[in-house]
């Protein structure tokens, strides 16, 4: 059943996101064409600049929109009137929830890939790749790892953080729906509360690290800190994210198990 749920989650979110992807690619191609013209007609430079700014807004906004689409799908499919159908399907709670998480991940990856492609169209392959490479090489020095494994770790870390944010909002919505009135207001409040709790835990974690090993702070000031400290800090960050991920997932799961749809 997970496969079927996933199919419809992907389809439904795709309906909202594919127009964005088409828009990004088209705008990138238009920019590219204009950039050829500006070489000969300098008046086009102004048009190009305006459109370039718009393009950047679309790229950043697009990523945020992807996040929003994930959240809306969760709310509409599970807690709005549509939930009457979703929750009377012979499907387990885990399938419903897991599918939402997976489809969020699929679309953020897709959005990033499409954004990259459109940026490469606008700025040219070599420029974009060399900037990326520089960044990765810096980190590969810090951690004393190959560029490839650094890239893999970075992707993993970014996806983990992203899904934590998604699940935080899911959990906020799930808790907000325990109230019979002002569900959306309560959803926002719970999300903010969860966010601040995690921020506090983060600060607490750094504090503990400092107590355990006072050298850490001085390491942070260095341009290239020692590898083991770096790994330590990143490891703690990931650990915290994983705890957060499972906690939020559990909250969502628990609320769906004790559903009170009104």
């Amino acid at each position: 059943m997970l496969g079927k749920v996933l199919k419809y989650d992907l389809k439904s979110m795709g309906k909202s996101l594919f127009p964005l992807y088409a828009g990004l690619i088209v705008l990138a191609l238009v920019l590219k064409v204009i950039s050829f013209i500006t070489d000969s007609v300098s008046a086009f430079k102004f048009v190009y600049n305006i459109m370039f700014i718009f393009f950047i807004i679309l790229v950043i906004g697009g990523l945020f929109y992807t996040f929003l689409v994930s959240i809306m799908r969760y709310y509409k499919n599970l807690y709005s009137d549509e939930g009457y159908l979703t929750h009377t399907l012979p499907v387990g709670t885990n399938s419903l929830l897991f599918s939402k998480v997976v489809s969020s991940l699929v679309y953020i990856v897709l959005s990033v890939i499409i954004s990259f492609i459109s940026i490469i169209i606008v700025l040219g392959y070599n420029d974009v790749v060399s900037v990326l490479k520089e960044g990765l090489e810096f980190f590969s020095l810090c951690f004393d790892m190959s560029v490839f494994s650094i890239a893999m770790w970075a992707i993993f870390f970014l996806l983990l953080s992203y899904i934590c944010y998604v699940l935080m909002v899911y959990a906020g919505i799930s808790l907000g729906n325990m109230h019979s009135k002002n569900k959306i207001v309560f959803s926002v409040i719970y999300t903010v509360v969860i966010y601040y709790i995690t921020q506090m835990l983060g600060v607490l974690l750094i504090g503990i690290m400092f107590l355990v090993n006072p050298d850490i702070m001085s390491q942070l000031d260095q341009a290239i800190p020692d590898k083991e400290y770096f790994i330590w800090i990143m490891g703690c960050g990931m650990g915290l994210n994983l705890v957060l991920l499972f906690t939020c997932y559990f909250i969502c799961y628990n609320r769906l198990k004790h559903l009170n749809l009104s």
């Binding site: 009137d81 549509e82 009457y84 159908l85 009377t88 399907l89 012979p90």
Partner: peptide, 19 residues
Amino acid sequence: INSKKVISYLPERPYVNFN
């Protein structure tokens, strides 16, 4: 899951995705 397999339910409100 087993009860949902055998019950066909029409709620008092519109409940399908109108898109």
